[in-house]
Every structure is written in C-alpha cells, then in structure tokens.
Amino acid sequence: MPHVTFVHGIGNKPPRDQLLGIWERALAYDKGFDLGTRGVTSTMVYWADVMYPEPAEAEFEAAEEVPLAEQADIDLEWRPSLEGREGRFVEQLAGELGIDDVETQQPADETIGAEFERIPLPHWLKQRLMASLLRDVHHYLFDAEHSPRPGERYRVQEEIRCRMIEALESGSRQPGPHVVVSHSMGTVIAYDALKRVKDCPPVDGLMTIGSPLARQEIPDEFQPEWEPQSGFPTERLNGPWINVFDHFDPVVGSLPHVKRFYMKGGEEVVLDLNEQNWGKWRHNISKYLRGPELRKHLVDLLSG
C-alpha cells in the first residue's frame, strides 16, 4: 500500500487530524485523487504546536483568501539580538521578503505583465505572512529556542527533525512507494531531513509545493552538505523530485525554479512545475492540491 508523508507549512494550523483531513479532501476535490479510496495511507508531520500556543480553528478549507490564523502578527523582537552569520542571514532574507519595506503607494490598476492578473494582497498582510516565514525559517535553520506555551520550550530544529524522522520511519514500514509531499516551510524541513540527517530513511519521491527553497539565502544555510552541483538528496531520495509553484505565490520568490540549486552530478533533474492558482492568496495549499498537474504527478509518484 503506498504511503504519503505530508509536511505542512508556515502559519498556525488546526489540530493534526483535522489538518490531514483538509489536505486529503482538497486532493480528492472535484474528481481528484482520493487517497482513502485508492488505499493510500498518510500521515502529517505536524509542527504548528512547536511555534504556536494552541491550534487554530479549522476554517480555511473553503476559504479562498488567507486564513485568519495565518494573518496573526508575528513577534520579531528576537531579530535585533542576532549577530554574525545568523544576523546577516535574517537581514538578507527579511530584505528579500520585503518585511521592512515601508508601504509605497501603488497605482490601483497596477498589473504585472500583460498576461498576469493583478495581485491585490494588501501590503500589511503580505508583511505579516512573510514575517511568519522569516521566523519559522530562521528558528528552524539556526535551531533557535522557542517557547510556544508557558512551561514548554523547544529547540525548533531538533524537535521538528525528530518528528519528521519518526514519520518517515513509520511510512517506510509500509509496503508500497513512500512519497513526501511538503508545502512552504515544510519543504525546508523535508529537504533538510533527506539531505542532512544520516538516520533518515530513504523515500521514493519528493514533492515540494510553494517552496522557498529557491531563495538563495536558504540553500546557503544547508552547507556544508549542500552545494548547487550536488544539492539533490541522492542518498535518501530514490525517485523523482517534483517542485510545484505559482508565479504569484509570495513565498516562492521571483525565481521559483529549484532545479538550478539542487542538481544531481551537475545535471538539472528536478521537475519544476508551474501550477496556476487563483485569487489573492496563491500560497494556499488547498488551491495547490486542486491543481491537475500536481495531481497527475502525485499519482505517478505513488504508482512507483
């Protein structure tokens, strides 16, 4: 029986089982790919509780726009105390993400290229979402200490890596192909495990969705295990890597193709797929999971 290990992305989330249900229903929506009917088992690597005090309400299943839980104002007070490489990383990524930009008045009818539709996501909201990405990426890559609730402290990378490896071990015990499907910050977690954790079990396919892995600052932090010519996690990825993006997803950046950073023996082998979403918030996983190309490639991955 094939198995999918899902890894969620930035922002607060509903409890694990609800979140898994939301992802599965989005994938099955409108004659899509119904994992339960096809006998595919699944687990969710849930880490929102490492960053947030309590789970969010399950609201974004039908929401076309940014879920309220993901609009939360993120505390960035930890930023000024950072020094050296860590400080430079955060400042560069914050600059890339436009977190410190003062809002400039944009013409109401601004368009981005004739063939693209306008993105009306308000500036303040985009800043909040990018702040969430900045915090999660930093805390993970630099294994920061974080206390989501009184009396609980985590080393963020240590805790999430541990959960990721546990889920992958459980998935690898299933007889069929084992595929990792990750979204947003979850793609950083998945890549880190497959590339840098020696005890990580191998998988048969990797799908990264709405990933920030093509933002230069991030792969730099995977060194020394990473370099562009051999960035593909060959040791623990026995199958293809499919990277799905939407050009207007603010998390992926202006150059969303990951193949140039994660080559196998100097060859570009990752398949970068442009899946066109809709509406203001193109990073929404429910939208991505309805994409026909994504579904087609996931079926192929699970068919071995």
């Binding site: 339960g36 006998g39 088992t41």
Partner: peptide, 10 residues
C-alpha cells in the same frame, strides 16, 4: 483495481 484504506472512515 484498488483496495481502500481501512481507517474506519471509508
């Protein structure tokens, strides 16, 4: 050709 998941929800 598939057998569904036995998770009590199918």
């Amino acid at each position: 050709p598939f057998r569904p998941r036995l998770d009590g929800k199918q």
